[in-house]
Every structure is written in C-alpha cells, then in structure tokens.
Amino acid sequence: TTVKVNGTKYKFDTPEEAQKFAKKAADKYNLKVVVDGDDLRVE
C-alpha cells in the first residue's frame, strides 16, 4: 500500500500502517485522506 503526500510516495507493508500514517499526515497538514484504489492520497 502506498500513501502519497505532497507528491512523495511512502510504501507500507500493511494497509493499517498506511492508514495510520495517512491520518497523521492529514491531521498535520490539515488535509484529508483520499482512497485511490488500493492506495491512499493525502490532499
């Protein structure tokens, strides 16, 4: 599972880890998590 934040992709072994990271990033930058198929985007 990958998470894309500000054009940078981060790869995670499990969707749970990816979800946690995406949520933290979204909170930090005051953005929202967008599900894109198997991957997540923070925008």
Results as ranks from 00 to 15, higher is better:
2 T>H: 07
2 T>Y: 13
2 T>Q: 06
2 T>D: 03
3 V>T: 00
4 K>W: 15
4 K>S: 14
4 K>C: 15
4 K>H: 15
5 V>P: 00
6 N>Y: 10
8 T>M: 14
8 T>I: 14
8 T>C: 15
9 K>G: 06
9 K>T: 14
10 Y>F: 10
10 Y>D: 01
10 Y>T: 03
11 K>Q: 11
11 K>D: 07
11 K>H: 13
11 K>V: 14
12 F>S: 00
12 F>R: 00
13 D>C: 10
13 D>V: 07
13 D>K: 12
13 D>W: 05
14 T>A: 04
14 T>P: 00
14 T>W: 02
14 T>G: 04
14 T>Y: 04
14 T>V: 03
15 P>T: 09
15 P>E: 08
15 P>K: 13
16 E>S: 08
16 E>N: 05
16 E>R: 05
17 E>M: 08
17 E>G: 04
18 A>Y: 00
18 A>R: 00
18 A>I: 00
19 Q>C: 15
19 Q>H: 11
20 K>S: 12
21 F>Q: 03
21 F>M: 03
22 A>D: 01
22 A>S: 02
22 A>Y: 03
22 A>V: 03
23 K>G: 05
23 K>L: 08
24 K>R: 12
24 K>N: 12
25 A>I: 15
25 A>P: 00
25 A>W: 15
26 A>D: 02
26 A>K: 04
26 A>T: 03
27 D>S: 09
27 D>K: 12
27 D>A: 12
28 K>Y: 14
28 K>C: 15
28 K>V: 07
29 Y>M: 11
29 Y>H: 13
29 Y>F: 12
29 Y>T: 05
31 L>R: 05
31 L>Y: 08
31 L>E: 05
32 K>Y: 10
32 K>G: 06
32 K>F: 11
33 V>Q: 02
33 V>P: 01
34 V>P: 01
34 V>S: 07
34 V>I: 12
34 V>N: 05
35 V>W: 14
35 V>S: 09
35 V>C: 10
35 V>K: 11
35 V>R: 10
36 D>E: 09
36 D>F: 07
37 G>F: 04
38 D>K: 13
38 D>V: 12
39 D>I: 14
39 D>Q: 11
39 D>E: 14
40 L>K: 03
40 L>W: 08
40 L>R: 02
41 R>P: 02
41 R>L: 13
41 R>C: 09
41 R>M: 09
42 V>Y: 03
42 V>H: 02
42 V>R: 02
42 V>N: 02
42 V>E: 03
42 V>L: 14
43 E>T: 11
43 E>P: 03
